[in-house]
């Protein structure tokens, strides 16, 4: 007798991802889908996709879904959750979407303690539009709109969204994770599951920031990208739990 021990999560639609080889969106999608399966919430989950590489995420998850205007996913999710408070609503956003054009929406959703979950994928660059500088781009990093390397004098500094958001009172759980190794994938899964559990318990806003590679726009191979992420991104964006009030609010 053989038994399937590893299969596609039910909450992932049966279709191919549009992501580049070596990109971490696929892993992160899977972790979110596994979480939805394990919590048995597929039939009551609504998802809000962003604008960016994951614009098709509403098709990749086999749950009810929409695409928000660029950066507005937390506001769209707020509208859904206030309309149907007993549903599970999550946003899936990249750093161009959440950390640039959508800063107001994410800050205020977090500060209101909006009972939604946000998965924030940070790869320090705009992927979909072809590798432009993001607020999260590291100093010295070359992109198509910082071709000589990002300079703080003219382009400012890498924006640390999780460090900013941790000061908002409405946030209940906030962790930055990576998915560059099997151990990190397990940790990321636990964080994502916790972030959804916060919503199921009605405790408030939860977000998981996931550091991701972008081999295509970083101009590196998938393996080199992981090395670069480990050596550079983790220095700028250290992993860890920024807020965990779950115990206090139980």
């Amino acid at each position: 007798m053989t038994e399937a021990t590893y299969k596609r999560p039910e909450s992932l639609a049966k279709r191919e991802f549009s992501y580049c080889p070596g990109c971490h969106h696929g892993i992160i999608h899977r972790l979110v889908a596994e979480t939805i399966d394990e919590l048995s919430i597929r039939e009551k989950t609504l998802m809000v996709a962003p604008v960016g590489c994951s614009v098709f995420a509403y098709e990749f998850f086999d749950v009810d879904g929409t695409v928000a205007p660029h950066g507005r996913a937390p506001a769209v999710a707020t509208g859904m959750k206030r309309s149907l408070p007993d549903r599970v609503v999550f946003t899936y956003q990249g750093d161009g979407d959440l950390a640039a054009i959508g800063t107001a929406e994410i800050v205020h959703a977090a500060n209101r303690g909006e009972k939604i979950t946000t998965i924030f994928v940070n790869n320090a660059i705009y992927g979909m539009t072809g590798g432009q500088m993001a607020p999260t781009t590291l100093l010295g990093m070359k992109t198509t709109t910082s071709p000589y390397g990002r300079k703080s004098e003219t382009e400012g500094f890498p924006l640390h969204v999780s460090e900013l958001l941790k000061e908002t009172a409405g946030i209940v759980y906030l962790e930055r994770v990576a998915v560059s190794s099997p151990q990190e994938v397990r940790k990321a899964k636990a964080a994502i599951k916790k972030a959804f559990t916060v919503q199921l318990k009605g405790l408030g806003f939860a977000m998981v920031e996931v550091l991701s590679t972008c081999p295509t726009n970083w101009g590196l191979s998938p393996v080199e990208s992981i090395k670069w992420l480990n050596e550079n991104m983790k220095k700028e964006y250290p992993l860890g739990v920024f807020v965990d009030k779950v115990g206090d609010l139980k």
Partner: peptide, 25 residues
């Protein structure tokens, strides 16, 4: 449901979200 948004940009997107659920908004 009443919610004062942080901007008109957010307000219209909240309307979008609630409208997605089919409830009058």
């Amino acid at each position: 449901v009443f919610l004062q948004s942080e901007s008109e940009v957010a307000a219209v997107n909240m309307v979008y979200g609630a409208a997605c659920t089919g409830n009058r908004v």
